[in-house]
Amino acid sequence: MKRALVALVSARRIAWVLAVVLGLVLAGQGAPALAAKKGKKKVQDTGDPIDVSGGKHPCYNLSHGRLFHRCEPQSLPYGRCRTGNSCCRGNYELSPISWYKCEDQNGHVTGKPTAVSILILGDNSNHRMSTGHVFVVEKVKDLGGGQWELALSHTNYDRRCSIETNVHARYDEHRRLLTMETGHWSGWGRNLKALGFILK
Rank of each mutant, 00 (worst) to 15 (best):
residue 124 N to G: 00
residue 89 R to I: 06
residue 106 N to C: 06
residue 44 Q to R: 15
residue 124 N to I: 05
residue 68 F to T: 08
residue 159 R to H: 08
residue 63 S to A: 04
residue 110 T to V: 07
residue 81 C to W: 13
residue 57 H to Y: 12
residue 154 H to W: 11
residue 123 D to S: 00
residue 146 G to D: 01
residue 157 Y to E: 04
residue 109 V to C: 04
residue 92 Y to R: 10
residue 57 H to I: 13
residue 130 S to C: 02
residue 50 I to E: 12
residue 61 N to Y: 13
residue 159 R to E: 04
residue 71 C to L: 03
residue 175 R to F: 02
residue 92 Y to I: 07
residue 117 S to R: 00
residue 64 H to R: 04
residue 166 N to G: 06
residue 148 W to S: 00
residue 119 L to S: 02
residue 117 S to L: 04
residue 167 V to E: 15
residue 129 M to A: 06
residue 69 H to Y: 14
residue 32 P to T: 05
residue 166 N to T: 10
residue 168 H to M: 12
residue 163 I to Q: 14
residue 118 I to W: 12
residue 110 T to H: 08
residue 152 L to A: 08
residue 44 Q to W: 09
residue 106 N to Y: 13
residue 112 K to H: 10
residue 148 W to Y: 12
residue 113 P to S: 03
residue 99 W to E: 05
residue 37 K to P: 06
residue 108 H to M: 15
residue 166 N to I: 04
residue 102 C to K: 03
residue 145 G to F: 01
residue 124 N to M: 08
residue 72 E to R: 03
residue 117 S to V: 01
residue 45 D to N: 10
residue 130 S to M: 03
residue 59 C to I: 13
residue 44 Q to E: 15
residue 39 G to D: 12
residue 93 E to T: 11
residue 42 K to Q: 12
residue 68 F to A: 13
residue 72 E to M: 03
residue 68 F to E: 09
residue 142 D to G: 00
residue 172 D to W: 09
residue 129 M to V: 00
residue 138 E to V: 13
residue 52 V to M: 07
residue 162 S to Y: 03
residue 80 R to C: 07
residue 118 I to F: 07
residue 34 L to T: 04
residue 47 G to I: 01
residue 134 V to I: 11
residue 54 G to T: 14
residue 68 F to C: 06
residue 68 F to L: 14
residue 126 N to P: 00
residue 75 S to C: 15
residue 36 A to W: 15
residue 103 E to H: 10
residue 103 E to D: 15
residue 145 G to W: 03
residue 59 C to L: 06
residue 153 S to F: 11
residue 31 A to R: 03
residue 159 R to I: 02
residue 90 G to T: 04
residue 176 R to G: 04
residue 133 H to E: 03
residue 172 D to C: 06
residue 120 I to W: 05
residue 66 R to V: 10
residue 148 W to V: 00
residue 116 V to F: 08
residue 89 R to P: 02
residue 160 R to E: 14
residue 35 A to T: 15
residue 140 V to E: 05
residue 70 R to P: 00
residue 142 D to K: 00
residue 156 N to I: 00
residue 174 H to T: 02
residue 153 S to W: 10
residue 87 C to A: 13
residue 59 C to M: 12
residue 126 N to D: 13
residue 73 P to F: 07
residue 95 S to I: 01
residue 88 C to V: 09
residue 168 H to P: 05
residue 138 E to F: 08
residue 132 G to S: 01
residue 48 D to P: 09
residue 140 V to N: 05
residue 75 S to V: 07
residue 42 K to S: 09
residue 169 A to T: 01
residue 31 A to E: 11
residue 61 N to L: 12
residue 51 D to F: 10
residue 149 E to I: 05
residue 127 H to W: 08
residue 101 K to E: 15
residue 39 G to V: 13
residue 145 G to D: 02
residue 100 Y to N: 11
residue 146 G to L: 00
residue 71 C to I: 03
residue 149 E to K: 09
residue 45 D to V: 05
residue 94 L to Y: 11
residue 51 D to Y: 13
residue 61 N to F: 12
residue 123 D to V: 03
residue 164 E to D: 10
residue 162 S to R: 01
